[in-house]
Design a protein around this nucleic acid. Structure first.
Lengths: 232, 232
DNA sequence: CGAATGCTTCGGCCGGGACCGAAACGCCGG
DNA sequence: CCGGCGTTTCGGTCCCGGCCGAAGCATTCG
């Protein structure tokens, strides 16, 4: 067995509120400095340093020195998937017992954000829905795949899927449960390609100091046109 | 957000060694009594009772009273997927720094066992490999699916996939990283159907007091024939 | 009906670890 | 070369939570 000890150690590492805050703050896939993470967790820098050191030696985070800053990021997609899995459970099966109090910042987050290497929020769920409706992708709780029509669609958009994914058989994608919408959006290689494509075309840009992403004016037109959406 | 507090609480719940032992003991999908779980965790019944109560109220476990016993099981497939995710990380990317000491019991576990609702171990990985070779399923890190040939194969075996899975488009399956083989085996609805099918036909049976499953003499012949395996 | 079994509740002990203040270390700017 | 800033290390305090012994309920059996 992976010695239940290792399991417990990993889980305990995520079980501290301060460390949990840092990890979820990193779930958008960016690299943040130790100071930013301390702020996000609401603790002093020296305490944060200790936590970050432990997370890094455990292999959950990777460090990158740049000048006098130290940038931390999730060490691998496997880490992100693990965090996703916990969030799906922690959100609870019947979370919405009424419209939760949401501030304006929360509103932006629910509209569109990144989830490690792909998109999430209302926008991402709507994109997934439309692609399913149009027969461009198929989604099920167990997995999903791009259809021929979907492959053409992505090619027209200029969103290339790396040949490694296309080599053997069909291009699979992974459903990822959106915590704000409680419905699946597109993750995996396809989700990552869609996300980076939207940024590369200037359709989306990151909001300073937040995990949210904003839809640019041009991006709004392009997304509405490409995906047949009506973005409020 | 699912308030990082909920995230931390869930993770902390799994982060205690005793609770981690109980959860991994339940990963084979069976329901165990409080006493059995106490034994598995190496703690006294009264301590275990406290832990189990907390896990149940948190929604990770479900309880079922039966006479003077109390049977605990994982509350949902989502819980199992979450645990899988942590195990994949906790096992580490470079776990095999040499052939680990394995006892005879460990050997049986590595040969064949259940992983919540599907099969794992050398047997399950070999089955997945052969089905991929034969073009019966396609697998990638992001997902997988049953091909037409695979659907025929399963039908010939008499392993029916519930119509719900077949209704819309293709039947997807989910790859699950095997902790002993470090390679994927088949999970999801397809994996669950394969597993229950093997038990129903008497090809496999559970080993008393262990998560391992044994291949029956008849099952060995049937599996070798159906999947083209050579079971040592 | 009383004894044995499985499980839970209560009370008290004790250790691990999270936290911060103070101070040292590297890096950049003037 | 020296002062500011981001980060880490050290030391000490304090509290949360896991653990068990003893006792209390429920259920089954003799």
């Amino acid at each position: 067995m992976p010695s239940t000890a290792a399991f417990a150690e990993t889980a305990a590492l995520m079980g501290d509120p301060a460390r949990a805050s840092m990890l979820t703050a990193l779930m958008d896939g960016r690299a943040l400095t130790a100071g930013e993470l301390a702020l996000a967790a609401g603790i002093t820098p020296q305490t944060a340093s200790g936590h970050l050191g432990r997370l890094a030696t455990a292999g959950l985070l990777s460090v990158e020195r740049q000048g006098r800053h130290r940038y931390y990021r999730l060490a691998s997609p496997a880490i992100a998937r693990m965090l996703e899995g916990i969030m799906a459970v922690a959100a609870g099966p019947a979370d919405p017992p009424g419209p939760v109090r949401v501030g304006p910042r929360d509103h932006a987050l629910r509209q569109a954000r990144t989830c490690y290497d792909h998109l999430a929020g209302r926008l991402a769920v709507a994109m997934a829905d439309r692609m399913v409706e149009r027969g461009q992708i198929e989604l099920s709780p167990d997995g999903g795949a791009v259809t021929e029509a979907g492959a053409r669609f992505l090619q027209e958009l200029g969103i290339g899927l790396e040949p490694a994914a296309r080599r053997r058989g069909r291009v699979f994608c992974r459903p990822c449960l959106d915590w704000s919408e409680r419905r699946p959006h597109i993750a995996g290689a396809v989700g990552a390609a869609l996300c980076s494509g939207c940024f590369a075309r200037g359709w989306l840009r990151r909001v300073e100091g937040s995990r949210a992403v904003a839809i640019t004016p041009g991006g709004r037109l392009a997304l509405e046109r490409a995906f047949g959406l009506e973005l409020g």
